[in-house]
Design a protein around this nucleic acid. Structure first.
Lengths: 196, 196
DNA sequence: GACAGGTTGGCAGTGACTGCCACTCTGGCG
DNA sequence: CGCCAGAGTGGCAGTCACTGCCAACCTGTC
C-alpha cells in the first residue's frame, strides 16, 4: 500500500485538497456555522451530492485527515523498545504525530483554532481521540504487563486518558495563546503537575 | 431562590419529568437514533414545537439536568478546607455529585449506558464536562496558589483534566461492566496508576 | 463501436431545529 | 362581570445537514 499512486488517485487527492482549501477559506471569512455545505459545493465547483461523497459530514472537512494519524500514533507507541516507560512511549507517539503533520504550522494553528472554537468540531475531534484511546489500550496493557481482557484495564485506561487530557490541555492553551506558547512546554508543565 | 416553588413551577417540573420518562422509554425500546422528536412529542402528548421549547435539543432529553450538577461540583470543591489536597478536593466534588443524583442507581446506569453508546449524546456530555473544567480552573488555581490570569494555568488545567479523565475512565468501565463493578474502586485504580 | 464498472449530478425525501403568528389561558383591574 | 396584558402553546412553513435513488457520463476493454 505504499506506492499504488495511480494517476487517478493523485487527481482525486488534488480534488479533495482543493475542496478543503475552499472550505477553510469560507469558514475563515464567514465562520464555520454560517457556511453551508451548498456554498462549499458551488465554491469548489462540485455538486452537493459529490461533496457529501468525498466528506461524509461537514465536520470532516476540517477533521477528516486525522484518522490516519491515529494509526501512526498506535504504531509508534507499539514500536518503542520495552525499556522505555509507558509515559515516554506515549509522548513519543504524540511527538511523531506532530512532526508528521503535512501542514504548515500556520495552518495547524488555523485548524486547531477552528476546532477549539466550534462545539460540533470539537465534539468530532473528541470522538476520534476516543477511538485512538481504545486502540491504544491493548498496546499499553502489554507494555504495563497487564493481561488484555475483553474490557480494558482501569490502570492502563487511566494512564492513556491522562496523557490525552494533558495533550488536550496543552493544545487548548496553545491555541488560546495564539500559537505563541510552546506546546511541548505546556504539556510538560501539565504532566509534571499531575505526576509530581 | 430556595423556595419560590409556585404551583406553576411544580406542574411544569412534572411535565418535564414525564416527557423525559416517555423519551427514555422510547429510546430503550427502539434506540436513540431511531426515535424521532415527533414521536416523543406525540407520545408525551405535547406538540413538537413545545417539546423543543422544553428541551432545546434531542440530546437534552438525556443530558439536560446535568447543568445543575456542574454548579454543585464547583461549589463543593470551593468549600473544601485549604488543608485538603487538590486531588482530595476534586474527589470530594465528584462524590457529592454522585450522591446528589436524584435518580435510582438503575436509572443512572440506564442513562449512562445510553450516553456511552450514542456518539451524539457522548459528545454533548463531553461539552458539559468541558464547561465544568473551565469553571473549576480559577478555584483550583487559588487552591494551588497560582495567580489566575485570563488564560488558565497549564498545571491547574492538567490536574483538572486528569481527574476528569479518570472519572470518565471509571464511568465507562463501570458501564461496560454492566454496573456490576465498583465505580469508586475503578477510579482509585486509574488515579493510582497515574500518580503512582 | 458496444459494454461493464465506477463516478457524478439532480431530485426528492427525512429529521432536527427555528421564526412567525394566531389561539388560549391565566391573573389583575375597573 | 367583562376586559386586558402577558405568558404558554400549537401549527406552519422554512433552513440545513444528510441519504437513497436513478439517469447520465466517462474510462478502459474486447
Amino acid at each position: 500500500m505504499e506506492k499504488p499512486s495511480t494517476l487517478w488517485d493523485r487527481s482525486r487527492q488534488a480534488v479533495v485538497a482543493e475542496i478543503v482549501d475552499t472550505a477553510l477559506k469560507l469558514f475563515a471569512e464567514q465562520g464555520y456555522e454560517a457556511t453551508t455545505m451548498a456554498q462549499v459545493a458551488t465554491s469548489a465547483g462540485v455538486s452537493q451530492r459529490s461533496l457529501f461523497r468525498y466528506f461524509g459530514t461537514k465536520e470532516d472537512l476540517v477533521c477528516g485527515d486525522q484518522d490516519a494519524l491515529g494509526d501512526l500514533l498506535v504504531a509508534t507507541v507499539e514500536a518503542q523498545p520495552p525499556e522505555v516507560s509507558t509515559w515516554d512511549a506515549l509522548r513519543a507517539g504524540f511527538t511523531t504525530i506532530l512532526t508528521a503533520s503535512n501542514h504548515t504550522p500556520q495552518r495547524v494553528l488555523e485548524i486547531s483554532t477552528l476546532i477549539f472554537e466550534n462545539p460540533p468540531l470539537r465534539s468530532r475531534y473528541f470522538e476520534k481521540r476516543l477511538r485512538w484511546q481504545r486502540a491504544l489500550a491493548p498496546v499499553v496493557e502489554k507494555r504495563m504487563g497487564i493481561e488484555s481482557g475483553e474490557i480494558p484495564d482501569a490502570r492502563a485506561m487511566g494512564v492513556i486518558a491522562t496523557v490525552f487530557a494533558c495533550v488536550d490541555t496543552a493544545s487548548e492553551l496553545w491555541v488560546r495563546h495564539g500559537g505563541k506558547a510552546d506546546a511541548f512546554e505546556l504539556y510538560e508543565q501539565a504532566l509534571a503537575a499531575v505526576r509530581g
